[in-house]
Design a protein around this nucleic acid. Structure first.
Length: 613
DNA sequence: AGCTCCCGCCAGGTC
DNA sequence: GACCTGGCGGGAGCT
């Protein structure tokens, strides 16, 4: 049991906690902060390091060994983990050395017994984390497997080799299967597809997400959240706000949820178990990223949407918590796949976990995809008998029954994969190219934008400034905000509002940081703009450094490009997330000093937006 | 107190 | 009936 964790095991966690290192934009909130992923996160840091080298290797053959792995040591989970841990944090190694020194053992003398002991201590709880486990799992297989070789996966073998229970492997396999990275051949047997079909799968999911109007659904939720905040502030009722948070989604979430839960509650009930499958949840979770702009999804919103797709009745906090648990499971696997990255959104109500899409930014056009697997996915979800059908139909032939014996579908699947592989090898959207696409680098999205024009455009509610962006940012489809369209510019200096799309209810203003990879995003509610579509101006923004409550930086966003707008500019990088308070909604924007005063103590970073005609 | 997520129970499905 | 699959939530470790 975890309660019996040894000291050595505990050592793994502590040193790995470290301050936040990145900020960027998120969906629900105003700022998202990417934590220095600790622990498993240590593992993940090392995972990333390893993945980096992994990437350089091209399609995986045999992973390079860690430096600390003896030259003769095979690439085993153990050696893998040793390398991961050592790469994760020198502090861990130091602590381990200290521990060894304290015990009167020399480093040399610990081999092999001591090494095994350390190994055993370290490879315990965290070694079994789903994220690391998944990483170790995928490290066993090439990204683009040779179809000529046997790519079968035996669950028993994997579980044995990774030294985990089968139950954990199922979790990984379900998520991988949801992305079509594996498919089940038979009982206890899967086949590995790697990333061969990942781009197509994501494109399909994106389309399904659009068709299910997940983008709008998220926007509705965000909007309601904003409105609730406003009401809560008006009423000055914190408790009411909290209570409302959970209940209102049921109350007013019908518009979006009814569409997704299907018309027949009995059918929904019958499929309840299937609908809750990790596979389906994973796909929907991914869909949210693919249709979200910016591609950041908070667990809260994801959970709400996923819950909403189940029967709305009987919804309670436990259900919410359970959903969150599952989302963590999924997110850990997706993180290991480098499709998402953990961040935090900070609102006035607190710091909340979220994930940012770091997967392929450019997805193949659907017209390049085969249609056989799209027929079902393209249908609106409400027209299907169950949500699970969506998942199955996404990747299986219509009517294929999911079960241990799916050989017919397997044949089709393999054929489809082979066909796709041929297409991919010649298509411009080849996965090989995708591999070269680095994860979305927000900080790099500095586009040539003339601040004044942008402000004006944003105020006009126009997207004309998009034309100044690189081609890829000129998203013509305003209803989709997936990665391929997702282009939120980080402005080189000064906080310049950027109206991403006409349809987006939230206007992100990304504020660059000197630290690579991180930005603040301030979201302004569009309702605040509508009444004065041509006259809104960002007059001033006041940021308050979390570390220095009295230190504020004001800027005239429309005129100055030189002023610092980085909360972290006051010296070192903040070690705790800053909070951005939206001044959104007509009420709050109507120049209500009293309201501002009420808001002020609640946040550490303020954005005051004044509207005038 | 809240976040994160490991762990294993156990129900439902398959062989 | 044995085994496989996986939903689920308790609760530990951590911030």
């Amino acid at each position: 049991m975890s309660s019996t964790l040894s000291e050595g095991q505990k050592l793994i966690r502590k040193p790995l906690r470290s301050p936040c290192k990145e900020r960027s934009a998120n969906d629900t909130g105003h700022v998202f902060v990417e934590p220095q992923t600790p622990l498993k996160n240590a593992s993940k840091a090392s995972e990333a390091a390893l993945l980096g080298s992994h990437k350089n290797m091209g399609p995986l053959t045999t992973p390079t060994k860690g430096l600390e792995a003896p030259s003769g040591e095979p690439w085993t989970p153990t050696s893998n983990l040793k390398m991961l841990i050592s790469a994760a944090s020198p502090e861990i190694r130091n602590r381990e050395k200290d521990r060894v020194a304290d015990s009167g053992e020399s480093e040399n003398s610990q081999e092999p017994e001591q090494g095994e002991e350390v190994e055993k201590l370290q490879i315990s709880r965290k070694d079994k984390s789903l994220g690391l486990l998944c990483y170790k799992f995928i490290a066993r297989y090439p990204n683009y497997p040779n179809p000529a070789v046997n790519n079968d996966i035996s669950l028993d073998d994997v579980a044995t080799e990774l030294n985990v229970e089968r139950r954990r492997i199922y979790d990984i396999m379900n998520v991988l299967e949801s992305l079509n990275m594996v498919s089940r051949l038979a009982k206890n047997r899967y086949t590995w597809h790697g990333r061969v079909k990942l781009a197509q799968t994501l494109a399909m999911l994106k389309r399904a997400g659009k068709e299910n109007r997940y983008g709008q659904l998220m926007q509705q939720i965000r909007q309601r959240s904003l409105e609730r905040e406003e009401r809560a502030f008006d009423l000055d009722g914190e408790e009411e706000k909290e209570n409302e948070e959970m209940s209102s989604f049921e109350m007013d979430g019908d518009s979006g949820q009814a569409e997704l839960s299907g018309a027949d509650p009995k059918a929904a009930s019958a499929n309840s178990r299937k609908d809750k499958s990790l596979r389906v949840m994973s796909q929907k979770f991914v869909m949210l990223f693919l249709v979200s702009s910016p591609p950041v999804v908070s667990l809260e919103i994801a959970a709400k949407i996923l819950i909403g797709e189940d029967q709305v009745v009987d919804q309670d906090k436990n259900k919410f918590k359970t959903k969150i648990r599952r989302l963590y499971d999924i997110a850990n696997v997706l993180s290991s796949l480098e499709l998402i990255k953990k961040v935090h959104v900070t609102e006035d109500r607190g710091r909340k976990p979220a994930f940012k899409w770091t997967g392929p930014e450019y997805l193949p056009s659907l017209k390049n995809l085969g249609t056989s697997t799209l027929s079902s996915a393209s249908r609106p979800m409400e027209s299907r008998s169950s949500v699970d059908n969506c998942a199955k139909n996404l990747f299986s032939s219509p009517g294929t029954k999911r079960g241990f014996t799916r050989h017919n579908s397997l044949v089709k699947l393999v054929k489809s994969i082979q066909d796709d592989r041929r297409k991919i090898s010649s298509a411009p959207t080849s996965p090989v190219k995708m591999r070269d696409i680095t994860p979305v680098d927000w900080s790099a999205r500095v586009h040539r934008i003339q601040p004044k024009n942008e402000v004006t455009d944003a105020l006009n509610g126009s997207t004309s400034q998009v034309s100044e962006l690189p081609e890829s940012t000129s998203a013509s489809n305003h209803q989709s905000h997936g990665p391929s369209e997702m282009q939120i510019p980080v402005l080189p200096a000064g906080a310049i509002p950027y109206l991403s799309t006409k349809c987006s209810p939230i206007i992100p203003v990304l504020i660059p940081q000197h630290q690579a990879g991180g930005s603040y995003a301030i979201y302004m509610h569009p309702t605040s703009l509508r009444p004065q579509p041509t006259s809104l101006a960002v007059r001033s923004m006041t940021f308050e450094s979390p570390g220095s409550a009295n230190t504020k930086t004001s800027l005239a966003a429309t005129t100055s490009n030189n002023q610092t707008n980085q909360p972290s500019s006051h010296g070192k990088e903040p070690t705790s997330p800053s909070t951005v308070k939206r001044a959104c909604g007509e009420k709050s924007l109507a120049g209500s000093p009293s309201k501002m005063q009420r808001i002020e103590p609640r946040v550490r970073l303020f954005v005051f937006i004044y509207c005038y005609i």
